[in-house]
Nucleic acid binder design. Structure first.
Lengths: 210, 210
DNA sequence: ATGTAAATACCTAATATTAAGTATTTTTGG
DNA sequence: CCAAAAATACTTAATATTAGGTATTTACAT
């Protein structure tokens, strides 16, 4: 059986180099090319014909989604597995809609990646469940909550602020009064000793809760 | 000569797996452990003694800088090479100040990484030049600005918003009227088709301009 | 069971942001 | 030099956030 031809697109060359080594170690895989951005990927694909493209979502020039669309428009037979930093149902949905065959988190393990490749290769799709994200984060958020004296509800609200909802929208989503959201936000700012929403978002990003 | 013992800390398991394969391919290197966040790194280091730690800056729980500090406080002899997404002089400076031995960009190649390891291993430091950051950002920001039709001033203001300044403070800093800042912010939101500050910050982070 | 923390809710008032329109000056590219 | 783009500045008005204070109900743990 012939090797499975893989093309890797990611703006981090280090990751490409690492994955290339990884596939070299294994039998049955061959990395036939790589690109650091979407435009180069599309150029390269014109002359190479991979079986599978591993596509990072976060690239300069032409971002992952745009690249995915063009790729699928022009080469519908090439299987595409998204490599993403984020477990966000919105992104997963969008990737599905644009024709991606799989979606693997970068903080998943190599076996996830191999499962995805195997699954996709047999014509099936490989996507993470869109639910369970609340479970998911709770053990990791624990430490963090204690450290900053934040309550569950407060963390929940921080996340929604980071998702660009305003207080009214958060209130509707949680079925509570806007007043309550305002109170929570005030308490959050006070506990974190910050004074505005940008600071809150920076804090959330730095602590990986958003 | 004994193998060089490497420990890898990065929140993306895929990157760890890739790099591990990469080092396995080579002679003289051995990956003795890995961690997906700073806390686990510190726990592991208590029992393992790597020669070199490859440390991602962007990790949950305990971020790269905080981890670096603790690591260097407790194990000053372990060499630490920062793996970073960003070529920002501020970060480079901070890492230096905290005792890092090297700083490698993830969008650099594997040979950069090997050079860094070699350099560090001989007791020297390996850092990218801090200058040329204006160059640096401008060519990378260039594409980005065109893509989103943003002007220089607008990008400047986006950065300041991300730095948690409000419109008044931005106005003072740039010696322009608050009205003007407001106008710029309005134009920015309109061009990016977003509707509030959290969305602006998310956009900036996603595009690496903040 | 009972005290404490958390979540809820409301009020007032000050600040900040967003929306929409307009207009002048400065910079820049051809 | 000239046209176009960018940066500047102002007005009015609607929303949203932040800063106070206060109070009730739930949930939780000793």
């Amino acid at each position: 059986m012939e090797n499975l031809k893989i093309f890797i697109a990611d703006d981090h060359q280090i990751l490409i180099d690492g994955l290339t080594s990884f596939f070299n170690e294994l039998d049955g895989f061959e990395v036939i090319g790589h690109a650091n951005d979407g435009l180069i990927l599309l150029q390269e694909i014109a002359t190479k014909t991979p079986d599978i493209v591993l596509l990072d979502l976060n690239m300069p020039k032409l971002d992952g989604m745009a690249t995915l669309k063009k790729l699928k428009d022009n080469y519908p037979n090439i299987k595409v597995i998204i490599l993403s930093n984020y477990h966000q149902s919105q992104l997963i949905k969008e990737a599905k809609a644009l024709g991606a065959n799989g979606y693997v988190l970068k903080n998943g393990s190599k076996s996830d990646l191999l499962s995805a490749i195997e699954t996709v290769q047999t014509g099936k799709f490989y996507f993470p469940e869109e639910e369970s994200k609340i479970e998911n984060q709770s053990l990791f958020t624990d430490e963090f909550m204690k450290k900053h004296q934040l309550t569950k509800r407060e963390v929940e609200i921080i996340r929604l602020v980071c998702k660009e909802l305003n207080s009214k929208e958060i209130a509707d989503k949680l079925f509570i009064a806007e007043f309550t959201v305002t109170t929570h936000r005030r308490n959050i700012l006070s506990k974190l000793e910050i004074k505005n929403t940008p600071a809150l978002i920076n804090f959330a990003k730095q602590n990986g809760i958003a």
